[in-house]
Simulated assay, not measured.
Amino acid sequence: MDERAVELLRRHGWRPGDVLGAGMEGTVVDLSADEVAKIWHDRDAVESEPLLRFGAAVERSPIPFRCSRTLEILDEDNLTMTIERKVSGSPLRLDAVPDAPLATADEARLMGDALAGLSTARAGDLDALPILPGE
């Protein structure tokens, strides 16, 4: 993990723990029982602001499950991190499975349940994030 990120988190009172995941957009680091930090590869503070508005809108919606939410943005010296609410659970399948099989019936049902839950969201600012970048 980037030492600048560790130092920035420590200055803000966090004790960075294990890396929970890494992908195209960034690296997620454990902070506490309730929070994680996402260290963004290419997103700056201005591009992260809609995440705050969107997360607040999702939280005001009657979604029947807990969603992640951006709580704070840390930005310093071309390094942007978001502090986010941790969501418990386990992945349906491991990342980067070579020749991944088609979705199982259980995976399809769970995805349908998640989409049905998200469809109940009605709060303002849900359009803070575009479906695809630039749209």
Rank of each mutant, 00 (worst) to 15 (best):
L132Q: 10
R69A: 15
L115C: 09
E47M: 10
M81H: 05
I63W: 02
D99A: 07
A33W: 01
L51G: 15
R15W: 00
A108D: 02
A128T: 10
S88C: 05
R66G: 08
L52N: 11
A123D: 13
F65G: 13
E72F: 01
R43D: 06
L118H: 03
H12V: 03
D2A: 03
E76L: 14
A96D: 15
R122K: 04
E25L: 12
I131A: 14
M1H: 10
D42Y: 03
L94N: 07
A37D: 03
E72Q: 15
L102M: 09
I131E: 08
A121C: 07
V58H: 01
G55Q: 12
L51R: 12
L132A: 14
A108W: 01
D44W: 02
D127L: 10
I83Y: 04
R11N: 08
V28M: 04
A128M: 05
E107H: 09
A22C: 03
S61D: 11
G23W: 05
G26D: 01
L71A: 12
D113A: 09
M1L: 06
I63N: 09
D34N: 05
V58E: 04
L94I: 01
S90P: 01
L20N: 02
D18Q: 09
S90K: 06
P50G: 13
R85I: 07
E59F: 01
K38N: 11
R66L: 13
A57S: 13
G13H: 02
L92W: 05
P91L: 13
V36D: 07
G112S: 11
P16E: 13
R43A: 12
D95T: 02
I83P: 15
C67Y: 01
P130D: 10
D127C: 02
I131G: 09
G17D: 11
P64G: 14
R43C: 14
D42P: 00
D95F: 05
F54S: 12
D18P: 01
K38G: 09
R85T: 15
T80C: 15
A5S: 15
E72M: 09
P62H: 11
A56L: 14
I39Y: 04
S48C: 13
P133W: 00
R122C: 03
M111L: 15
R60L: 09
L126S: 06
P98C: 04
G21L: 07
P50R: 10
I39H: 11
M1C: 04
S48E: 07
V29Q: 03
S48H: 02
L110V: 14
D30L: 14
G117P: 06
A45Y: 02
P64Y: 09
M81D: 00
A116K: 04
V28K: 01
V46Y: 04
T70I: 10
L31H: 06
E72N: 07
G134N: 02
S119M: 00
A114S: 06
G117E: 05
D44V: 05
P50L: 05
T70E: 15
S61M: 09
D113K: 07
E76P: 10
A45N: 03
E7C: 01
H12Y: 10
L20I: 03
D2H: 08
R85G: 14
G55W: 10
D44S: 08
A37R: 02
D44I: 04
F54K: 09
M81I: 12
I39G: 06
T70P: 10
